[in-house]
C-alpha cells in the first residue's frame, strides 16, 4: 500500500511578537507585516501523523498552505522535518479570505496538487481559531472528515479513528479518502535533523497562484468571504488602580484593610508568624 497524504498547514504569528501585532482601524484586519511566523503548532502534529503513516505503509507526504509568499520558509521547515513535497498557494486574490474562501482555495489547491488518500489538518489555528477550515475543506472535497482525532489506524483504505469528545470518545470506521483534524496530544512531533535540513533544499516546492487553480475568482479572498468583521478593536485592559503610600508596614496595614474590604477572608489563608519561613 502506498498512500498519498496531504497535510494542510497554516503559518501563524510567532507568539513572541504578539505585542507587536496591530489592527488596521479602517480595513478591520490584522497587520502582520514584519511579524515572523511559525507553523501553527498543532499542524506539526498533523505532519507527524502523516509521516508516521508514510513510514508504516509507504507513500508520499505533501504539505500545502494558502499564505503570503514568505510562507515558503515555513514549508521548507516541514520539508526538513520529512515531508516530500510542498505546495504554496499565494496570490493577492486570496487575501482577506474568511474560512469559506480559505477552504475553497485550499480544496482547489489540493485537487491541483495530485491525488490524495488522506488529508490531515490541525484542530484549530493559533490565530483565527475558528476550527471551521477542516470541515469546510472536507465538504469541498466531498470526503468524510473527523475532528479532534486522538488516535487512528489505517487498514486497507479504511480508517479506524478515535475522536475525543468533552466527556469521552467515539470510535469511527471511515472510508478513505478522508480528512482527519488531529489534536495536539495525538503525538509528539519529531525534531528536525541536520540531515533533514540538507535534504530539504532538493525537495520540490511548488508555488501556485489563483490562475493555476480551477476556481471562480469571485469566490476567492475578501470578495468571496461572506464573513464581514463588524468591528475589531483592542479592548482596553486598563484596571482601576489605587496607590498605597507610606512606610512598608503602613502599606501592608492598608493593603490588609483593602483586601478585607473586598471580602477576602485572610484568616482562612492561614498566614501567621510561625508559618512564615
Amino acid at each position: 500500500m502506498s498512500l498519498n497524504i496531504t497535510v494542510c498547514i497554516k503559518p501563524v504569528p510567532d507568539p513572541d511578537y504578539y505585542d507587536k501585532i496591530t489592527i488596521d482601524p479602517v480595513k478591520k484586519t490584522i497587520t502582520r507585516a514584519g511579524i515572523p511566523t511559525i507553523i501553527n503548532p498543532v499542524d506539526k502534529n498533523a505532519v507527524e501523523a502523516a509521516l508516521q503513516v508514510k513510514e508504516k505503509l509507504g507513500g508520499k507526504v505533501v504539505v500545502i498552505t494558502m499564505a503570503p509568499p514568505n510562507a515558503e520558509e515555513n514549508l521548507r521547515e516541514l520539508l526538513a522535518m520529512g515531508a516530500d513535497e510542498a505546495v504554496l498557494l499565494t496570490d493577492r486574490a486570496f487575501a482577506g479570505a474568511d474560512t469559506l474562501a480559505t477552504s475553497y482555495a485550499l480544496a482547489a489547491g489540493l485537487k491541483k496538487s495530485g491525488p490524495f488518500d488522506l488529508v490531515f489538518t490541525g484542530t484549530e489555528s493559533a490565530d483565527g481559531a475558528t476550527s471551521q477550515v477542516p470541515a469546510q475543506l472536507a465538504e469541498w472535497l466531498d470526503i468524510p472528515h473527523l475532528w479532534n482525532v486522538q488516535e487512528f489506524e489505517v487498514e486497507d483504505h479504511t480508517l479506524k479513528a478515535k475522536m475525543s469528545m468533552e466527556n469521552g470518545y467515539i470510535n469511527y470506521l471511515v472510508q478513505m479518502p478522508a480528512l482527519l483534524a488531529v489534536k495536539r496530544s495525538i503525538n509528539k512531533p519529531r525534531y528536525t535533523t541536520v540531515m533533514g535540513v540538507m535534504k530539504a533544499k532538493k525537495k520540490p516546492l511548488t508555488v501556485l497562484t489563483a490562475a493555476d487553480l480551477d476556481v471562480e475568482p469571485e469566490r476567492l479572498g475578501l470578495q468571496g468571504s461572506p464573513t464581514k468583521a463588524g468591528d475589531i478593536f483592542t479592548p482596553s485592559l486598563a484596571r482601576k488602580g489605587q496607590q498605597l503610600t507610606g512606610e512598608t508596614e503602613e502599606i501592608v496595614e492598608q493593603l490588609i484593610q483593602v483586601l478585607r474590604g473586598a471580602g477576602l477572608n485572610l484568616e482562612s489563608l492561614n498566614v501567621n508568624e510561625a508559618g512564615r519561613e
Binding site: E77, A80, Y191, V194, V197, M198, K201
Partner: peptide, 16 residues
C-alpha cells in the same frame, strides 16, 4: 539559508 535553518532545528532540540 540552510545554516540558519540548521541553527533553528538544533535550537529546538536544545531547548527541549
Amino acid at each position: 539559508e540552510e545554516q540558519e535553518m540548521l541553527r533553528k532545528a538544533v535550537r529546538e532540540f536544545v531547548e527541549a
